[in-house]
């Protein structure tokens, strides 16, 4: 790890000013991605600005939404009574991610900004990584791709966005609130991430120095049922091979409202408007669910190592939707 200076921020304005002024300065929150990548030599900041003591923690309810402070930890958010009551699939996704020890450190802001798990990205001994070293190529495409993405990929990068909680968050049209030197702005999570294209090193629309201060999460409508299902090799403590987060309102056997997103398959948390279109105003049947899953995975691009994930992702989504429909019945 390269030597760095540690600064504990006294207020958000100071933090934003410090980081914005210097491309070699980064934020430090829970540290579970940042320190890991610094140890690997992938991230090499000269200065870290610790934002964990800023008053950015906690969940407040506005009636139709909750506002989650950026440094709220995953465990804290999972324990929030409104989340438990009104956003159960967020709680499910949170508790299926990482381990309790990591969830006690990892913050919601940091979770959204977590970096790819790709071992080609994380190992500087690998020369070809467009995300780490733009223009150098992508070793993952010809390597072991089982844990990589099949949606939103490009010829330059197939790295997965591995967050669980971002899946229900993106399904809910959450808004990321950030503060920059030019003031605050809100960014819909659906527009927050950038697909790799030919610039995989640019992962989101944040400008350097912009600080996530909160995530605003709309509540599910009354009568909605939600579920997050995660499929992986181990029963616990592993990233998803595939996952699905969905919320449905079903009235008299008809789906009146649907929100669907997928994990484990996309270069970003994958909102599936295609699946939602199929589901909306359709009968809550297995056939509908299958059609939705087919629509969700249309356009998937696979490699030999990821070919099975198309079918698995469809089955994961179908099971998720069936579970929701079954729970309602």
């Amino acid at each position: 790890m390269r030597p760095f200076e540690y600064v504990r921020a006294v207020d958000a304005g100071q933090a934003v000013a410090l980081v914005s002024a210097d491309p070699d300065t980064s934020y430090l929150a829970g540290g579970t991605t940042q320190l890991d990548l610094m140890k690997d030599g992938v991230l090499r900041p000269a200065r870290l600005v610790d934002v964990t003591r800023l008053p950015l923690s906690g969940v407040t309810s506005t009636g139709s939404a909750i506002r989650v402070g950026a440094t709220t930890t995953m465990e804290e958010l999972a324990a929030d009574p409104v989340v438990i009551e009104r956003l159960p699939f967020i709680r499910e996704a949170l508790l299926l991610g990482a381990s309790t020890q990591l969830r006690n450190l990892a913050t919601i802001g940091g979770n959204l900004l977590q970096r790819a798990r790709c071992r080609y990205f994380r190992d500087p001994a690998v020369e070809a990584c467009n995300k780490r070293d733009p223009g150098s190529g992508c070793a993952a495409i010809t390597g072991f791709a089982r844990m990589h993405a099949i949606l939103g990929t490009s010829d330059h990068c197939i790295a997965l966005h591995a967050s669980d909680v971002a899946v229900p968050l993106v399904a809910l049209d959450s808004v990321v609130h950030v503060q920059g030197v030019d003031g605050p702005r809100g960014i819909p999570l659906t527009e927050f991430y950038r697909p790799p294209g030919d610039t995989p090193h640019i992962e989101n629309v944040l400008r350097h120095g912009e600080l996530i201060t909160a995530v605003e999460v709309p509540l599910l409508p009354e009568g909605a049922r939600s579920h997050y299902l995660k499929v992986r090799d181990r029963v616990s403590y592993e990233f998803a091979l595939t996952s699905a987060g969905a919320a449905l309102v079903i009235q008299d056997g008809l789906i009146t409202s649907a929100r669907v997103a997928l994990g484990g398959v996309g270069t970003l948390p994958w909102r599936s408007w295609e699946a939602e279109r199929v589901l909306r105003d359709a009968p809550a049947t297995r056939e509908t669910f299958r059609a939705a899953a087919d629509a969700a995975l249309e356009g998937a691009r696979t490699l030999p190592g990821t070919a099975f994930k198309v079918d698995l992702a469809k089955r994961t989504l179908v099971r998720t939707l069936e579970t929701i429909a079954g729970a309602r019945a």
């Binding site: 798990r117 071992r119 080609y120 190992d123 001994a125 690998v126 390597g143 072991f144 844990m147 090799d233 181990r234 029963v235 616990s236 403590y237 592993e238 990233f239």
Partner: peptide
């Protein structure tokens, strides 16, 4: 090169 030389990538069973 070994492509999964970490405990996050090389799986051994967990309690569950």
């Amino acid at each position: 090169r070994i492509a999964n030389a970490t405990f996050g990538d090389y799986l051994i069973p967990v309690n569950a």
